[in-house]
């Protein structure tokens, strides 16, 4: 894993998420693709187990830092970290190589991380109103539609192509 490239990628994604992503929305200005979620799935399915754990928690940290939930951090660190690790474990049993499967993985991860973050927010305070349609369907769906097409450029940047990973496993 090239950690310097990873840090630059996460930083750029966090900045884009809070700025230019506001231009890409459907139906509602709050429904936009989640770049950090897409990266979470990418690293969960392409990294070694230990690297996947680190990458998942760091992406959660970046998500909480760039777009804090009700003024405190933590819900997305934990939800991204836990579900990113689980997806990595799952990927070792079920291969997620094809675009539709990658899209489905992003969609499901979007739902479970949104629900988990919302539930964790209850530990600290009364969180923001939870829009099931927006956070559990539209946002993950938009991320799932765009995400798989970002895997190639991200893989090129991280020098982590799918074929290289398959070769390493064999």
């Amino acid at each position: 894993m090239r950690w310097l490239r990873f840090a630059v990628l996460v930083l750029v994604a966090a900045i884009l998420q809070t700025t230019f992503m506001d231009m890409i929305w459907i139906l509602d200005a709050n429904i936009k693709p989640d770049l950090l979620l897409i990266l979470l799935v990418f690293f969960a399915v392409r990294c070694d187990p230990t690297d996947a754990v680190i990458a998942s928690f760091v992406l959660g940290f970046a998500a909480d830092l760039a777009s804090p939930t009700a003024g405190f951090m933590g819900p997305r660190i934990i939800s991204f970290g836990v579900f990113g690790t689980l997806l990595n474990d799952l990927h070792n049993m079920i291969a997620i190589h094809r675009l539709p499967y990658q899209g489905a993985a992003i969609f499901l991860m979007g739902i479970v991380t949104a629900v988990a973050s919302h539930l964790l927010s209850y530990l600290r305070a009364d969180p923001a109103a939870f829009s099931i349609a927006r956070q559990c369907f539209w946002q993950p769906a938009l991320s799932a539609a765009i995400g798989p097409f970002l895997f190639s450029p991200v893989g090129w940047w991280m020098h982590m192509s799918e074929s290289r990973r398959r070769r390493r496993k064999h």
Binding site: V53, D64, G71, F72, G74, I77, I78, G81, V82
Partner: peptide, 13 residues
Amino acid sequence: FVLGGLIFLFSPP
């Protein structure tokens, strides 16, 4: 990392 996340979660805002 989970412990770190919990520390962040319960840190003062």
